[in-house]
Amino acid sequence: MSTTIPIERLTSRRKTRQRRRSGPIGAILLFTVPFALMFLAFYVAPIIYAMVQSTFAQKSSGLGLGALQEVFVFFDNYVRALSTPSFIASLGRLFLFCIIEVPLMVITATILALLLEAGKAVWPRAFRVIFFMPYGVPGVIATLLWGFLYVPSTSPVLQGLAAIGIDITPLQPNSVLFAIANISLWVYAGYNMIILTAALNSIPSELYEAAKIDGAGEWKTIFLIKLPLIRPSIVLVTLFTIIGTLQLFVEPLVLSPLTTAISSDFTPNMAAYNQAFAQGNSNLAAAMAVIVAILAFIMSFGFLRIVNKKGSEAW
């Protein structure tokens, strides 16, 4: 198996190949500088700008109908964000959503990949295309479509279920997170499935032969050979899903007019968007966004730490 775990490079430098030579300066600059400049201009600079912005506030006085003044307020915006109960609640909600969405996504994608790869399916190509198609539908549009399917009076599915006595109302407060998770699942499961099928296909067939000779059945092969061997890809898919869920934004934003269960600050990103675009408080918005970014760092690196520690002997 020629797999070095790609993710590993995120956290450890153990295996960096030291034999690479220190190359000619000209080539190094030519390869890296164009990207570095663009990255500075379109990622680093705006982030620094946002951080600076998050330490200011716009103040008016009296009736608030005179011109605004910009005041330096240190960490006031951060304190304000973190002392707003609804913002804290949105962080908790996001965490809950992560717990629902990540296993749902990873397990679904893995099952689909295993089913397709089992070699028992008729028309595997057609199925692969069908599962993958939703990835081409932008989140805004996917949510508009599911919005129709979530409302009993316009949804053929819910009407069908109601006809056989099952009443489901997906946009109720206690099910709305699942309704949103379903949309993300629909869009990204096929994409993740492709990553995993690709990994499964690259398992050398000798391993299966050997397993067969040892008398291992289907299930045994899955749990003892396939899953352990595609572990790096599963880790990658999990990481993508975590990063994606932390930025949850478009789906609840588009669904929010359809339900009482989604407030304007349902997720931290929505709260930041609401502050910046509806309420014109880009300073507070910047502070909220920085908090989300920091959380994303902590959770992604935390996840990698855990899998690296637990799994190091397996690799």
């Binding site: 009482t260 269960a261 600050d265 509806a278």
Partner: peptide
């Protein structure tokens, strides 16, 4: 008033939560 969008989003959020 000034901050009308705050008024709107606060009112909608509160009405939604009072119903839920």
């Amino acid at each position: 008033p000034p901050l009308v969008s705050t008024l709107y989003s606060t009112l909608i959020d509160n009405v939604k939560s009072s119903i839920d």
